[in-house]
Computed example of a mutant assay.
Amino acid sequence: MTFDQILNTRRSVRIYDENAAYDSQIVSKSLERAVLSANSSNMQLWEFYQVSSEEKKKAIVKACMHQSAARTASELVIFVTRQDKWKQRAAWNLANMKKQFEGKELKGKGKRALSYYEKLMPLFYTNDFLGIATLIRFSIVVYHSIINKPIIHLVSHADQRVSLHKSCALAAQTFMLSMKSEGYDTCPMEGFDEKMIKKSLNLPSKAEICMVMACGIGKPEGIYTERTRVDNSEVIFKV
């Protein structure tokens, strides 16, 4: 399919054909494509869980309140944010940067790249019990605002969460488009009990569920209505 065909035929399908031929490898391939998605600072603070076992699927279906999309899906994919892994990812990026600059004279761009993961990422992601790191970030933002110098307003834990979920959602969109290109349907779901899903997947308390994705061959009745969008003039602006 062309890209336009993929976009125009991708729908959130809520009822799947449980007897249709289904290739689980397509989901695996689409998750490998999702890994290539754009994400904030290449930190890749995400995890994707392909739920294939009946036992796990039943637990996730229950957590999704037995929605038809979850209940009839051939497989479910859980998109998870992992803010708690920022130190590992920053160190991984730093090691890769050092390899790229190995044997070369470090100049402005190279020094900034290393400093980005050595100093800036800890400044962005550190959260301590007393809130000192948050206060430091807040003070820096206030100072830059006073002198009218642009700065990323990433101060609180909530700001960090938003950043992570945006990156994870980009991966989920890549996954959905990949699945459609292979002839499969999906349905992203936000209606679920996060605590139940985390318990089922043995996830730590700091992990968060971005969305649950139903996968399979959709039935015609799984598309409830015709697609409607507000007029482009209300959402697209040229300035």
Score class of each variant (00 low, 15 high):
S181P: 05
P150Y: 02
S178F: 03
M196T: 08
W46E: 00
G222K: 12
W46Y: 07
G131N: 12
F192C: 04
L177W: 10
S167L: 02
S28P: 00
L170Y: 01
K29F: 06
L201K: 13
Y22D: 02
Y184T: 03
K99I: 03
V13I: 14
G218Q: 12
K109G: 02
S40W: 13
H144N: 15
G110T: 06
F129N: 12
V61D: 03
R112Q: 12
Q100Y: 09
K199I: 01
I6M: 04
A158P: 00
I152R: 13
N42F: 13
S52M: 09
M196R: 14
K107R: 15
I223F: 05
I6P: 05
G183H: 08
H165C: 03
Q50N: 14
I15S: 08
T186A: 02
K104I: 00
I132S: 11
R11S: 03
M97N: 07
M176E: 10
A91Q: 14
D159I: 05
D84M: 07
S233L: 07
D84E: 15
Q173K: 12
P188F: 05
F124M: 13
G218A: 09
S200M: 06
R227C: 01
T186K: 09
T81Q: 02
I15H: 09
K99Y: 03
S205V: 13
E55M: 08
K99S: 07
F48H: 11
V51A: 06
E182C: 07
M176C: 13
L203G: 05
T126P: 06
G108L: 13
S30W: 07
G218E: 10
K85A: 06
L31R: 11
K99Q: 11
R82S: 01
R227L: 08
L7Q: 08
K119V: 07
L170R: 00
A73H: 10
E234A: 11
T225A: 09
L45D: 01
M65H: 14
C215K: 10
A214G: 08
M189R: 09
A63E: 04
A207I: 03
Q160Y: 04
H66Q: 12
S163G: 01
K109T: 06
I151V: 15
M179T: 02
A113M: 14
T9G: 01
F79W: 03
C64L: 03
K104T: 10
A21C: 01
R14M: 04
V80L: 02
M179C: 10
A38T: 05
Y116L: 13
F175A: 00
Y184C: 03
G183S: 04
Y184M: 05
S12R: 05
K85D: 04
V141Q: 12
D23S: 07
L130M: 12
P204M: 07
A133F: 11
I60S: 04
F79M: 07
G222D: 08
I78V: 15
H66S: 07
Y22Q: 05
H153W: 10
S181F: 06
K29T: 09
Q44E: 13
S41P: 00
Q5C: 01
F79N: 01
E190A: 10
I26G: 00
S53Y: 08
F138D: 15
S30P: 05
N148C: 05
K180H: 05
Q67V: 01
D185S: 07
A158R: 15
C64P: 05
L45R: 01
I132Y: 14
R227I: 05
S139G: 14
H165D: 09
E194A: 13
N202Q: 13
F101W: 13
A59G: 01
L114F: 06
A69H: 07
E226A: 12
D17K: 11
